[in-house]
């Protein structure tokens, strides 16, 4: 357990002081929900929050970003990503920390993505332990991401009047330099244990999803009736992809200025649930039905990424089901697939 703590006021004071060197990004209250936003006044920052609508991936991979700039003379250039001020990304829940690990893996795997890596390397990440379930949709406990620290540089655990503080990297230690840390004793560790115990009972499902078993179950579930059932409900709107912290698929298209000589090649978030996602120029569509696309979505979360990188593609944040008009719930899908598997065995 951590040996340091900081009072809640002192942490805010420290973050405020850091504004001179860092661009601070963290959860703020929006009209209807929380969102990650740039913060110039730490009073807006809500370190203890229920989860945001959009995941923090937008910090490293904006919804739309220029990859190439074209000049009038026909030459193309890379846009520069400013790194003069490091970014402090504050108060990521464990689900988002693990999701960040996954996208780090993919975008750092050779050939590495320069845009993502530049932003990522420029950021210090402060994680925060969840002391209660975000709501009735979250199932991070079932996916094994609850309490995980992932690639956080600092991990905070909120108690009544202070945070326990764990620096996890050199970057984290540098960020904490000068903070009013004090010693944290066993009683704090015990308090965390007590709260976590109570917290765990409040999740909607107490059962852990066995990730290996899920991947195996998917292998034999290509023809499962669930895909057609989901296809009957899914509106193919792509909201699940947009709100998912581990979805990173993108489209690339050119945008010219009115002059038609200068312009940009941009990438923007894309969604495998949209009909044209796997369609080729001749009109052939390799995932032409909603059932194909739902299966692809869930197999990607539960099987493809797990098989390739040994990381869960679903972190149980619950964002997709929270926003899904058709109430499609990944945990229910996983449980159905695992059920049939155990019925067969």
């Amino acid at each position: 357990m951590p040996a340091s703590k900081i009072s809640k006021d002192d942490l805010k004071r420290h973050l405020s002081e850091k504004l001179t060197d860092y661009t601070l990004v963290g959860p703020v209250k929006s009209r209807l929900a929380y969102k990650f936003d740039v913060i110039s006044n730490v009073d807006r920052l809500e370190i203890e929050y229920t989860t945001t609508v959009l995941p923090p991936k937008k910090q490293f991979m904006p919804t739309v970003e220029p990859l190439i700039r074209f000049q009038g003379d026909g030459t193309a250039q890379l846009p520069l990503i400013p790194t003069d001020r490091p970014v402090a990304l504050v108060a990521l829940h464990s689900c988002d920390l693990i999701a960040t690990d996954l996208i780090d893996t993919i975008f750092a795997t050779a050939p590495g993505d320069p845009y993502y890596k530049t932003r990522r390397e420029n950021a210090v990440i402060l994680g925060v332990r969840c002391m209660e379930p975000c709501d009735t949709h979250a199932f991070c406990n079932a996916m094994g991401t609850l309490d995980q620290k992932g690639g956080a540089d600092i991990f905070l655990t909120p108690l009544d009047h202070h945070f326990l503080v764990e620096p996890l990297s050199k970057k984290g230690e540098t960020f904490l330099a000068g903070a009013a840390l004090s010693h944290s004793g066993d009683e704090d560790a015990q308090a965390v244990g007590r709260i976590a115990n109570e917290r765990d009972k409040q999740f909607r499902s107490q059962e852990k999803v066995d990730l290996k078993a899920l991947s195996d179950a998917m292998t034999t579930s290509r023809d499962h009736e669930i895909w057609d059932e989901l296809a009957g409900e899914c509106l193919a709107c792509g909201t699940c992809n947009i709100t998912c912290p581990t979805c990173y698929c993108f489209d690339m298209c050119d945008k010219m200025e009115l002059s038609l000589v200068d312009g940009e090649r941009r990438r923007s978030w894309d969604s495998c649930q949209l009909r044209e996602f796997a369609e080729v120029a001749g009109g052939e569509n390799f995932r032409g039905t909603r059932a194909d696309r739902q299966r692809h979505r869930f197999f990607r979360k539960g099987k493809y990424l797990f098989d390739r990188y040994d990381l869960t593609g679903c972190v149980g944040c619950g964002r997709c089901v929270r926003q899904c008009v058709a109430d499609i719930d990944p945990l229910e899908v996983y449980q159905r697939l695992l059920e049939r598997r155990s019925a067969r065995v």
């Binding site: 050939p111 690339m252 990438r267 996602f277 099987k303 493809y304």
Partner: peptide
């Protein structure tokens, strides 16, 4: 195999089949 491709470098997800 022919697939829709946007990036060509294994990132954009369009040409993914299984893993």
């Amino acid at each position: 195999l022919e697939r829709r491709m946007k990036c060509g470098v294994g990132k954009c997800g369009h040409c993914q089949i299984n893993e």
